[in-house]
Structure formats: C-alpha cells, structure tokens
C-alpha cells in the first residue's frame, strides 16, 4: 500500500502547489506613497507613488474619499510647453518594472479636497488596476524635497 499511497499523495500535493489562476498572481506592490500638502486656499494637490506589477497590468483609475475627484495625470511637452493631461486609458505597468509617479512626471491629482492637507497627515487612496485587485494605500503628506529648498529656508 505504501508504494501506492505515496505517489498519490505527491500528485495531490502537486495539484495543490499550482496557483494556476493568473488573477491571483497579478499583484502590484506599492511603495513611497506621498501627497503634497495643499497650498493656502487651494483644494488641489498631487500625489506620488511607485508601482511594481507582477504581471503586465495597468493603473486604470484612482479614488480618494477626501477628494471630490481623483485622476491620473501625465506630464507631456507639447510645442515646448509642459502640459498636464488626464491619462484616460490609465497608466501601463509592465511586469517587474518599477513605475514611479513622481514630481515633474506622471502623478495622481486630487481635486475638490474637503479639507486642507497638512504635512504628517495620511491620505487614503484607492488604486484600481486592470488585472490586480483594487488596493488601498495610505499616502503620507510630505513636502517633497525640492532642489535648493534648504537654501530657501535660510
């Protein structure tokens, strides 16, 4: 019996081993989620994050309870003028590529904020992907270091 039982058990193990459903494997890891504090009297701010997908994916939309509207924006240069525009088709996340949304580049735009954002606070943002499950992120409100900022402070 032992001879029969062990291979059977092994096959069963092998069956359990496989995570065959690709959806379960489509995961996006999120790091360095930050938002800028709001400027006086403004209800708009930018948020930044680094996303790495385990399978080719796409950031389709974002949402934040604190903001009336949240969009993914790209920065592009047209006729020597830098323009900001919504990425209506979302942002491509090639597998294993760390895609950074960073100041001066692509970013998340929060509009119609219900309250001003102060450095040290946290903002909840939901990221919706084409493949991976939606993910909730808590972005820290920080003033991104700007070149020469320390000189301004003097």
């Amino acid at each position: 019996m032992k001879r029969l039982l062990i291979p059977t058990a092994l096959l069963m193990l092998a069956g359990c081993n496989q995570t065959s459903a690709p959806e379960a494997l489509a995961v996006v890891s999120v790091s360095d989620a930050t938002c800028r504090p709001t400027l006086n009297g403004r209800d708009v701010t930018g948020c930044f994050v680094t996303l790495t997908a385990s399978r080719n994916d796409r950031l389709l939309s974002v949402a934040a309870p604190l903001a009336g509207m949240a969009q993914i924006h790209e920065m592009k240069i047209e006729d020597d003028i830098m323009k900001m525009a919504e990425l209506r088709d979302g942002l491509a996340l090639p597998a294993g590529d760390a895609v950074s949304l960073k100041p001066g580049g692509n970013h998340i735009m929060l509009m119609g904020l219900k309250q001003p954002l102060v450095a040290g606070e946290q903002v909840s943002i939901t990221l919706n992907f084409e493949q991976a499950q939606p993910m909730g992120v808590r972005a820290l409100v920080v003033q991104p270091p700007v070149a020469g900022a320390e000189h301004v402070a003097h």
Partner: peptide
C-alpha cells in the same frame, strides 16, 4: 529578454 532585475521585481511584487 527583459532585464533580470525585472524578474526579481515581478516575483517580489507578486509574492510580497
């Protein structure tokens, strides 16, 4: 062949 660094990043993102 994509960069081996992307293999690592994809595996780390997918498994945590």
């Amino acid at each position: 062949i994509v960069s081996p660094d992307r293999w690592v990043a994809a595996a780390q993102a997918g498994t945590g």
